[in-house]
Amino acid sequence: MADLWLQFLLTIDATLRVATPLILCAMAGIFSEKSGVIDISLEGKMLMSAFAAAAVAALTSSALVGLITAIGVSILLGLLHGLASITMRGNQVISGLAINILASGLTVTVGIAMFQQGGQTPNLARVERFRPIELPLAEHLGGVPFVGSIYREVVSGHNILVWIALTAVLFTAFILTRTRFGLRLRAVGEKPEALDSAGVSVTRTRYLALIIAGVLCGMAGAYLSTAHGSGFVREMTAGKGYIALAAMIFGKWQPRGALLACLLFGFLEAVASRLQGVEVPLIGEAPVDLILALPYLLTVILLAGFVGKAMPPRAIGEPYLKER
């Protein structure tokens, strides 16, 4: 029984670790899509910043400098997406896709040129990574029944970016619902002409949304390569950006909903990796690949309106043409 409880706690702990980049990217997606800009480039931004973080951390021996660079790179990609989809009024999906493909090519190309390791960065040393933070008394309180074990296994021992990700959810919810900027951001995604006639710049608001999204994606990328992992591996995002996109939709473009969806998807992944090669009674070997496919399937079902209805912002995907 005690063993089962520990297994459960470890799975929850793993869920948080896996969900962190999803949460950051989903919040990025909310900022961008609430402002009316489709953002399938979450994947590419995360990949590029994962590379930037690891590469710079390896060169400067500082995880923090890596993180800052990652955020910078991700913002730049966001601005590129903005140039295409806001200023040039191009197709937002195509622009996002282009950024994703660009990121796949560029990370490996630059990676090989810089480190000659087939597109990887060198293994990062301790100081070049974000280390787990043991909370005070975690070991001492671990013996306390129930609460103590939760505190030691689940709450303690995460790195700073996990905490930032959780804070980002509160931050997103606060900005969107409690600030003037948030109100404008939501308005610009629903009815840009209204905002325009009120004298607020649609372009500026959307660019700001993309910059915030860039910051969040940059942290997600840095988390992958310098906190969760210890270095960049080619294609290391492996579709996480798309899962975050799915989680955002699954959460109906709301911070709280998206958080829950990220935790659910993270939980599925954590369970799948624990079940790898495990024999399950009646089924035989656990169908890990199918469990990993569940986030996509659930999102399709939700989008089709079979359970609830996910309504995107009304003006999403439409470039705004200011009337003269």
């Binding site: 140039l83 989809s85 191009g90 937002q92 622009s95 896709l97 282009a98 950024i99």
Partner: peptide
């Protein structure tokens, strides 16, 4: 893709 699509 970027030049012929997004930045068309």
């Amino acid at each position: 893709i970027l030049f012929s699509g997004g930045l068309a």
